[in-house]
Design a protein around this nucleic acid. Structure first.
Lengths: 197, 197
DNA sequence: CGAGACATGTAACCTGTTACATGATTCC
DNA sequence: GGAATCATGTAACAGGTTACATGTCTCG
């Protein structure tokens, strides 16, 4: 059901086509929600049927025609009451394919587990770097037509940054401990030397 | 597809009925994965068809009969190669109903946003307390038949604890800033006094 | 001449939720 | 007498993904 509200949210920024919305998702929202284009088109249709949005068919030359959507009054009030509700976040965590792996990772030999952790680490690094460049971009924005919205989005980015940094720190600790164990259990191989190649 | 591997993982701990698996999910796995009973029964059937698990029908007295599942060799190797793969975690964050709200929360007046944040805070508190009691339980476990598995699960709980704590700290900062803004923008109401009731 | 942006959609499929059906035993 | 536990399943629906179809314009 949240896709519906993600669409209402995006349309609250101005009227748009399904295609525009998809681009907006990919550009600014992908870290909190995403959807395939076919799902977006389908959902917009059904939202129009129940009166949350209205559309106008715009013929265009030298480009495909398009359908511009905008919020109705019901759409706006629906969005605002959803914002204040707790629908869809009864449980904070469920379905995390990485954490699920951790639960059973003890099956594998240490080295294999280490490899998986290193991949997660890199992934977190990329994610953190993404938030940092986005925060810089926001910092450069001198003024906006929607300063309140902007401030919340800035804070959101900061939060995501903190959360991923916490996870990275945890993974880092795990990796270090496993590497230490490795050295303890097979000390013959790399006694204290450090040359290589 | 991850439900499949969650089921393989649970069955790697010993043969079980669908009902047992459901209990195990609710008890120990719910913070990384969950599933409804009907989905579990359905998936087990289809896993049996493709040879990942085998089942035996156990007639019982004074209780309903049951079907006990166990891993096949293919199931075990499938589980282990999934553990080393990165299937299903290409993107770290997508679909977070709370964070999606944050993105558009600037639409609401400050007070409304504060309310939502306070609810999130409470939710995080509950979650953190849950991890803490679980960590204490693990700490009490003197020895186990699967010490390696246990160690990873302990670390997983620590990680979840860290991650939620980071999020709580972020929310806490947000709440404080909003409350400060509130006092600034309407200072007549609570000048410097502090009595009440 | 091919790739990519623009633009909307259908069909098939997979995943997940909810409601319903059945029925004995045990515990309060 | 009623609720919880044990135990498996079907049916209908909702939500989400992937593949495919169509067609123009622009840029390199």
């Amino acid at each position: 059901m949240s896709l519906r509200y993600a669409l209402l949210g995006v349309l609250s920024l101005g009227e748009m086509s399904g295609y525009d919305i998809k681009r907006r998702f990919d550009k600014s929202l992908h870290f909190v929600w995403n959807a395939s284009d076919s799902q977006i088109y389908r959902e917009l249709r059904s939202m129009e049927e129940i009166g949350l949005v209205e559309s106008a068919w715009i013929p265009q030359e030298s480009k495909p025609n398009k359908r511009l959507y905008q919020l109705t009054k019901e759409g706006e009030t629906g969005l605002d009451s959803w914002l204040q509700s707790t629908d869809g976040w009864e449980s904070i965590h469920d379905k995390d394919a990485f954490m699920l792996r951790m639960f059973f990772m003890g099956r594998l030999p240490r080295g294999k587990g280490l490899e998986v952790l290193r991949q997660r680490y890199e992934q977190l690094e990329r994610s953190i770097r993404f938030y940092e460049t986005r925060l810089r971009e926001y910092g450069d924005t001198k003024r906006s037509r929607r300063p309140r919205l902007l401030r919340w989005q800035l804070r959101l980015l900061e939060g995501m940054h903190e959360i991923d940094s916490a996870q990275r720190a945890w993974i880092d600790g795990l990796i270090n401990d496993l590497e230490r164990d490795d050295r303890k259990s097979s000390p013959r191989r790399r006694p204290t030397a450090k040359t290589e190649g």
